[in-house]
Structures are given as structure tokens and as C-alpha cells.
């Protein structure tokens, strides 16, 4: 039986700005089991990065505010942590790598000193031992030259920097690694290397990975389960094969259709019409309704809950998969209805 490592329940992170409240994350449920690789997919601005930053406690508050819900990591509610307790979690239990390797390392300190800092933050070891461990961690990610410890970030390429970021994230052996678009800024060949590396670390060390991306190719390659987000909500969740073969939510289906395919010739690549809704003025009813080709009258009035699709743990937030009547006897705690 696999144990749940990360469980986000009914989580809402809103931003209070001068121009109104931005509901960046508006009631999402998400779980990651130990050793699992979960993909979190969605367009820019759908709240996936805010979700990941919330798990790290890196959303600046204010303007951000946790409105409701909880984030449980190995049974502990992270939303209630104090500043000091957060520092025990970050880098130690959960680590994160970011989209921009070029700017994610401090330019004025050597790679070694930045890694040693990460180690000594959480482990009671001397400088020499920390340096040794830093070298080990860098060898793990495929950088075997010792001189790297004394090099500065600007002397490294983007791919090398992302390796350093991964080594730095893994150095305290966290249970969960959050990867926020780790390959977006890299060349395609380097992307494959970085993904290989992450998969290897997942298999060898059993580190669970929450892979945040808008690249469905990355998802197909890496993840066992996928959560699709749209406008601050989870709209569909399924294991990776089901999602690709049988997407239920029109948004997911649209995303999959917009991937170019070599075997099918078409004059124009499909794109989902319209734009992401303004987060200050979410549509009433289904948030995807204004862009949806299957839109019905109910979609504009009532917000759909997450419906269970018959096969396994496949859920979809769309009225196509259930009716209002079923909504009445829904499982109130998880906002999920069996159909």
C-alpha cells in the first residue's frame, strides 16, 4: 500500500491587490504518494506555480493569503507552520527547482558555497564534510569534475546550472521534489538529459516528484498520474495513460488536440479559442464555459463539481459527466460525485 506524502485539500490561495482579489488557487485537491511522479498541467496563469510555491511556503503574504484548506506533508499541516518551522521543511523535506536555471543561482557565490550552505542549513556537518557531500551530489547529477565547486554560475551553461540546481535540491534527500517547468528554458537535447536525470533520481532514491509543466510531452515521459488545472481549479485528474487515451474534460481534450502530430497532416494546428478568464472576474458557472465547444445552459449557471468517471480514479469537472441531481448527493468533503 502506497502512502500519501503530500495531500492538498480544498486549498485556496487568494491575492489581495488594490484592484481586487485574485483567486489564483481556488479550492484544489491534489495528492502525491511516496515515490510517485505526478504532473500538474495547465496554461500560464492557471495557478499551478502558485500551488507549488504554496507547498514551499514561498508565496509572499501579503498580498497572498491562504483562504481555506490545508496542505498536509506526511501528516503535518504546512499552512499552520511558523516561520522557523518552515525553514526546517524547505530544502529538507521538500525541495524545489525552478524554470530559469540561468537566474536561479546566486551570481556572486561559487557553486560549492551555495551547495554547502544548503547542506549545513539542515545537517550538522563540518565544512569539509559538507564540501565532500556537495561533490557527491554533483557527481550524482553527472558533473564529475571537482573544480565545479569553485566555479561561479556564470561560467556554466543552462543545462549545467539546472543540474547544479537539482543537485542542490537533492542534497538533503527530500521526500518530495517540486519541479516548476524544469526544462522549459533548456535546449531540447538538454531537456531530455534533465528529464532522464530526474527519472533516475526518482527510481534510485524514491523521491516523489511534483512536475509542474505546460508541456504534455514531458508529462507523457515522466508522470504516472496527471492533474490538469484551469483558472485556479483542478478540472481533470487521471493516470497518464487514461488521460492521453481518453480525456474527459473538454479543456484537456483541447490541450491534447493542440499538440502537433507528425503522422496527421493538417493545414492549421488546433488551438483552444478564447483566452484564460480574468482572475478578478471569474465567470459564474463553469470557468471554461466561455471557451468550450460543448457548452450547455447549465454550464453558464452552475459550477460543476469533480465527477468520478467510471474507470478508477479518473475525475473531471464537467457537466457532461453528471447531472445536477447527482450533485446533490455528492461527497461533500471532496467535492466529488460518482456517476
Amino acid at each position: 500500500m502506497t502512502k500519501t506524502l503530500l495531500e492538498i485539500k480544498e486549498f485556496k490561495m487568494h491575492f489581495h491587490t488594490d484592484k481586487g482579489v485574485v483567486k489564483a488557487v481556488d479550492g484544489i485537491d491534489l495528492s502525491v504518494n511516496e515515490g510517485e511522479v505526478v504532473g500538474l498541467v495547465g496554461e500560464s496563469g492557471c495557478g499551478k506555480s502558485v500551488t507549488s510555491l504554496s507547498v514551499m511556503g514561498l508565496v509572499p503574504t501579503p498580498p497572498g493569503k491562504v483562504e481555506a484548506g490545508s496542505i498536509q506533508l506526511a501528516g503535518r499541516d504546512l499552512t499552520r507552520l511558523k516561520r522557523r518551522e518552515w525553514r526546517q521543511v524547505r530544502g529538507n523535506e521538500v525541495a524545489m527547482i525552478f524554470q530559469e536555471p540561468m537566474t536561479s543561482l546566486n551570481p556572486v557565490f561559487t557553486v560549492g558555497s551555495q551547495m554547502i550552505e544548503a547542506i549545513r542549513q539542515h545537517r550538522q556537518v563540518g565544512k569539509k564534510e559538507a564540501r565532500h557531500r556537495a561533490g557527491e551530489a554533483l557527481r550524482e547529477v553527472g558533473i564529475s569534475r571537482d573544480s565545479i565547486l569553485d566555479e561561479y554560475p556564470h561560467q556554466l551553461s543552462g543545462g549545467m546550472r539546472q543540474r547544479v540546481m537539482i543537485a542542490m535540491a537533492m542534497v538533503c534527500e527530500p521526500k518530495l521534489l517540486i519541479a516548476d517547468e524544469p526544462t522549459t528554458a533548456l535546449d531540447v537535447t538538454i531537456q531530455a538529459q534533465i528529464l532522464d536525470l530526474m527519472r533516475r533520481l526518482n527510481q534510485e532514491k524514491g523521491t516523489a516528484i511534483l512536475m509542474i509543466t505546460h508541456d504534455l510531452g514531458v508529462v507523457a515521459e515522466m508522470c504516472s498520474r496527471v492533474v490538469v488545472m484551469y483558472a485556479g481549479q483542478v478540472v481533470e485528474e487521471a493516470d497518464v495513460n487514461t488521460l492521453f487515451s481518453n480525456p474527459k474534460h473538454p479543456y484537456t481534450a483541447g490541450l491534447l488536440r493542440s499538440i502537433p502530430q507528425l503522422d496527421k497532416r493538417s493545414d492549421r494546428l488546433y488551438s483552444i479559442p478564447g483566452n484564460v478568464p480574468n482572475p478578478r472576474q471569474m465567470p459564474t458557472g463553469c470557468r471554461f464555459a466561455p471557451r468550450c465547444e460543448h457548452v450547455q445552459s447549465i454550464c453558464l449557471d452552475r459550477e460543476p463539481p469533480l465527477f468520478h468517471i467510471t474507470t478508477g480514479d479518473h475525475t473531471s469537472r464537467c457537466w457532461l459527466h453528471g447531472t445536477e441531481k447527482e450533485d446533490v448527493d455528492r461527497d461533500s468533503s471532496r467535492d466529488v460525485v460518482r456517476s
Binding site: M56, L58, W86, R87, Q88, V89, R90, G91, N92, A95, M96, F98, E100, T103, S104, L105, N106, P107, E117, A118, Q121, H122, M165, M168, A169
Partner: peptide
């Protein structure tokens, strides 16, 4: 900047 976010993500005070 991004690198300050990285430092914070390491749990530094």
C-alpha cells in the same frame, strides 16, 4: 530575483 527565491527554498534564514 529568482536566486533569492532559490535561497529561500533552501530554508536559509
Amino acid at each position: 530575483s529568482d536566486y533569492i527565491r532559490t535561497v529561500r527554498a533552501k530554508g536559509v534564514s
